[in-house]
Amino acid sequence: MEILLNNRKESIDKDEITLAELIEYKKFTFKLLVTKVNGQLIKKDIRSKSIIRDGDEVLVLHMISGG
């Protein structure tokens, strides 16, 4: 399937994947993230239940200390 991950096209060799699996697969290593799927905020505790399918738009943002 093909998804839009952080505004870039990304091919994934699966028909569907959970958001938690995608984060693992893409090695997003920062400890704190904000995630959205198709514009909807997905909090950490439901990332393993959020299913990503072909054509979905996924946003994975690192929270970076400093201000």
Binding site: L32, V34, K43, M63, S65
Partner: peptide
């Protein structure tokens, strides 16, 4: 300044 506070307010505003 802190990453956990950044996450808290972004999730609160969006959610």
């Amino acid at each position: 300044d802190q990453d956990n506070e950044k996450q808290m307010i972004i999730e609160t505003v969006l959610g």
